[in-house]
């Protein structure tokens, strides 16, 4: 499932990044690595997503959020 389709409050595990090489490295450096735990904080006014990644808060546009594939995190 795509991160874009998740709702505020959802707790997720990042599985794959389907983004271009340069963009991919930037996401990896910020901590968007496979296995990372995410939670959706809010959906932005124009389609973006505000996610919590550990103690950091990152805003993503809709397209990027659509390229991150996630699974519900059942452990939490």
């Amino acid at each position: 499932m795509r991160l874009r389709d998740c709702a505020p409050g959802d707790r997720l595990t990042l599985r794959r990044l389907r983004v271009r090489a340069g963009e991919r490295l930037r996401l990896l450096e910020l901590g968007f690595v496979p296995g990372a735990l995410l939670h959706v904080i809010a959906r932005g006014a124009t389609g973006g997503l505000l996610v919590g990644l550990g103690d950091a808060r990152v805003a993503l546009d809709g397209a990027t959020a659509g390229a991150l594939l996630v699974e519900p995190d059942v452990a939490r």
């Binding site: 990044l17 983004v19 991919r24 490295l25 690595v33 496979p34 397209a63 659509g66 390229a67």
Partner: peptide, 25 residues
């Protein structure tokens, strides 16, 4: 991914994993 309008179609050919991702992980 391919029917998503705001992403280029070539994304399907991207590697799922690469050494860069492994190292970052």
């Amino acid at each position: 991914a391919t029917d998503s309008p705001d992403r280029p179609a070539d994304l399907g050919e991207l590697p799922e994993d690469d050494p860069e991702t492994l190292v970052a992980e």
